[in-house]
Design a protein around this nucleic acid. Sequence first.
DNA 1: ATGAAAGCGCTAACAG
DNA 2: CTGTTAGCGCTTTCAT
Lengths: 335, 335
Amino acid sequence: MTSRSPDPLGRRATILDVAAAAGVSRQTVTRAMNGMAGISPATRERVQKLAADLGYSPSRFAKGLVQGARISVGLAIPDLTNPYFPAFASSVVEAATQRHWNVVMDDYGHGTGSSLDAVARLAPQVDALIGYLGEDSDDAQALMGRRPVVVLDYPVSQAAGGISFDYRHAARLALNHLTARGCTNIVYLDSDQGGTAAGRGAAVAAMAAEAGVSPTICHAAPSASAAREAIAVLAAGSNLFDGLLVFNDLMAAGALKALQDSGRSVPGDCAVIGMDGIPLGELVTPELTTLSLNLRTVGRTAVDLLEGLLSGSVPAHSKDASLTLRHELILRQSA
Amino acid sequence: MTSRSPDPLGRRATILDVAAAAGVSRQTVTRAMNGMAGISPATRERVQKLAADLGYSPSRFAKGLVQGARISVGLAIPDLTNPYFPAFASSVVEAATQRHWNVVMDDYGHGTGSSLDAVARLAPQVDALIGYLGEDSDDAQALMGRRPVVVLDYPVSQAAGGISFDYRHAARLALNHLTARGCTNIVYLDSDQGGTAAGRGAAVAAMAAEAGVSPTICHAAPSASAAREAIAVLAAGSNLFDGLLVFNDLMAAGALKALQDSGRSVPGDCAVIGMDGIPLGELVTPELTTLSLNLRTVGRTAVDLLEGLLSGSVPAHSKDASLTLRHELILRQSA
DNA sequence: ATGAAAGCGCTAACAG
DNA sequence: CTGTTAGCGCTTTCAT
């Protein structure tokens, strides 16, 4: 293998270097590299080999500048560590890939970052944005200018479009099921973080009022371990709750463990309902009854919406740019 | 808010449009947009407002071309749906973000795609690649030319660098633990897919031979449900295995469910050990004993290595570019 | 404080 | 089949 080893850091070879080495014009190099017509097989191969030897790869910037490159969408996600988000991300990536878009992923939960940091990082790199942006949604759209932002799980105001969830519907489903089961002492374990939490908590409160039940509300950080601890404390107390609705499936899984640790049987002593419908729910014991969202659908819907926004077939801020999806109650063992 | 609504699809506003609208030179616009010195506050604000109204955002290509943009690394992953990969991806994203790199994510498991398709999509977009590339590793490096590829869980040959796992060590740990527990009839549930599977399977076989045990080998697709089914079938048979080592934690979780369904207690009737150490293991019942990898470390190591490769401080193909990480046995309840 | 010129690396549109 | 010209949108000089 002939190859000088060029400093990895130093200037990369350009098309001109290859052209010079081959003694041809840069156009010929273009033709060789892109499999275009109008070049003799001999030159093509010679050029290609030379290019490989020189370690030449075309600058995506130059190429993008002249050709207008494929769309890249930024995906801003709070925490890849909560299985909900990869499941969602996965479907976004899939739908994007089908359209020959690429997705630049940013997880802002890790550092101390806010979602706005993520957007700031993403904004110069992408043509559009999908994300769980919460209260930063408006600022995010400002940073993106005219480029569309699709906000998940937060009311669209400045954002071009968004997807919300009908939490009142979900809460009604869960509460009805619990009361129909005979639960009289219900607790709702909420996330202690704003944004989404507000939406879900408020809906649960409203629907509880409507159903004439008054659940105990408690809070924990949105992780399995925090939920486990919170429920452990609660279960150790005198509260003999017999129904538990949890902010999300991950937390519900933690709650299940705590209940089990405390010797309460599920659903015998206490029925448990999660929210999200992630695959994890089928792996825990007892298997988790949950308000399920088809994550595949959510991701696909977000990308479809974005496509509409990008093409102009869906006007930004229009009614069609604001979608609402509904949860469905999946009965498994825990309730 | 003054704003003509420009066709979303049509040509985006350029710096020249803004300059014309403001009646200044493009240079002044640059200065206004980038907060540079040498411009009166008045003009700056006027230009900024105009830019916003026109929906102007600078072309990342033009900018990248002239400035040399931040590094983007491609991340090629087989299946975001297996919790192992998001956990890994998460740490890569974190480490990359700290370096002001961005990561373009591609999940090739979804479609019928091979990892090479993912690399082909990624190659024109990125400066470097990290991925679970298996047998496509060499071709991937070819597609990337001189740009470094860090391969995970597969021997480095053409790739610039890689991270492998010491499966013989892992297998020894597990087998020793199982035999020390008194297991005499051990089964190894392998993935039915090549690549990584080969490495793990071979290591288990080798270490079993060394330990003088001869496990039953069975195969399933690398998903919880496939594993569950495979173990259900096995458990229904006459094989009274008392130790089960599983290809990964996800499959182990499925196996646990199957054992439970079949009425065999874990670890009483059968001890179970998983591999990977994903958080899921703590949520299942009984909690999963596993050969754990610190995923956070794996991701960070991959990014560190890539940084070395990129800067030239670690020569491609060198000894230092080939790292090996070891699993650690975490004892929980299942074995 | 502002403007003019040059050029980043590539490909499209024409020559020849 | 190959080479020449132009120009993508931006920032860097270097003037003014």
